[in-house]
Design a binder for these strands. Sequence first.
DNA 1: CCCCTTCTCGTATGGCCTACGGAAACTATC
DNA 2: GATAGTTTCCGTAGGCCATACGAGAAGGGG
Lengths: 255, 255
Amino acid sequence: MTEFSGRTDPERILPLLWRHRAPAAGRPTGRPPKLTVDAVVAAAVALADADGLAATSMAKVAARLGVGTMTLYTYVPSRAELVDLMVDDVLAGRALPGPGDPRPENWRDQVGVYADRTRAMYRAHPWLSQVTLVRPPIGPGMLAEREYVLSTVSGLGLPLHRINPAALAITAFVTAGARQEADSAQLRRATGQSDDDWWLQRMQLWEDWFDVERHPAMTELWNAGGFHESEDAFGYGLAVLLDGIAADAAGFSPA
Amino acid sequence: MTEFSGRTDPERILPLLWRHRAPAAGRPTGRPPKLTVDAVVAAAVALADADGLAATSMAKVAARLGVGTMTLYTYVPSRAELVDLMVDDVLAGRALPGPGDPRPENWRDQVGVYADRTRAMYRAHPWLSQVTLVRPPIGPGMLAEREYVLSTVSGLGLPLHRINPAALAITAFVTAGARQEADSAQLRRATGQSDDDWWLQRMQLWEDWFDVERHPAMTELWNAGGFHESEDAFGYGLAVLLDGIAADAAGFSPA
DNA sequence: CCCCTTCTCGTATGGCCTACGGAAACTATC
DNA sequence: GATAGTTTCCGTAGGCCATACGAGAAGGGG
């Protein structure tokens, strides 16, 4: 099941995301902490990378750090906040070019940088596909992403009310592809079977169940070999999506 | 966390998906069953619709049917198979036009039918967004979807190796949108708070954290009002994606 | 040496899936 | 009507999970 980010108290999670410590005015001190928030997040990310998000229980993260389970609750209000912190951490890890940083000139290549790094992020942290991002952690990583993608489409000449939709469409498509790849990798690990083997195993039973009459388009494409030598669907889809956005923008430029 | 479909033994799940009973040759009979597979699946879907997939435990499904928990294991090998059956059931529930059934003439409208019914499906069954479909149940519902989407792009004149990628890109984009909407609906239910309220609550803390210098494109678009009167991102994105596919196909047609 | 503050973490509760195996319910046969 | 054969029903038990609560430990400042 998907973990739901975005259920966390903003007054508590925002200072954590931006790593603002409490003012600590009189600093009365007390027992010194064994850990830091960063150490907890890093251990959780490492565990999730290795064993998946379901295996990233509070008990296992604590064990990896050599402390008792309940100690974690000193650093993080609950597991939900920990997941938010993990997510923004890896989002920021893409290190997308900020304002003033060097980037490709062509806007399509700029989108390419975003797509490549996002795919790499999901490959390194496939558990990310288990966390919905409809209410994302409002942290540095998430804001850097929005800034970068918006900056790539801002100069195209789109009308004002289409700039954000275009950026969101690009993000949605890129993320969908990266998530499918991540889910695939996790299944391969969990089952020891590749996607190709999985489909092959089912193809052997294909003729028992497949009704040619009800699926003429599939059958025709199959017989013509159209499933075998397919182009990469996400590369193709992103290319034509960008074509469509560019054509839309061109319609508003002076001819 | 996402539930992983596609981990199920094909020899057991395929007959269930297609509802082929064992031959029952000598039919020795025995104690008559209280339930059917369909009844179990229907109860599980109803429960998931109402309370979400996490709340759809074997114990709760059994309770809803008035039987002991372990009784369910007579009908389905495990919870994983039950989820597969639930998924194919609701996929088939879209009742997409099959070969010979009436459908819009224009291919864009045909895709529109697919998009609208898929969105409606995710609205009715938001738990679907928790199940990855990279190894989907090979059942009637899933095959009907592939057949329909492929049939809409088959007549465009695309080269053979781009027909399936185009169909997959459409599915990926439509599904990504529907899933975001579903996640949003689930969060609204779980928290009692709409997305707008959620963002508003965080906007109030915006100035404490947001650095204008690092986010010039966002800032400019915000000040110009580009976030307020935004067009629907998924409607816009699907339109330009189809534009891009059509333009690609036109490049192969005789001029 | 004591107080104050902070961090540490054992225990306990209520849930989850499902392996196992005995009891129950039905038909067919004698 | 008894018995055998077959199938379905389901209680129990074990090993996971998050986290509320509160007692005790470990520092600094006086």
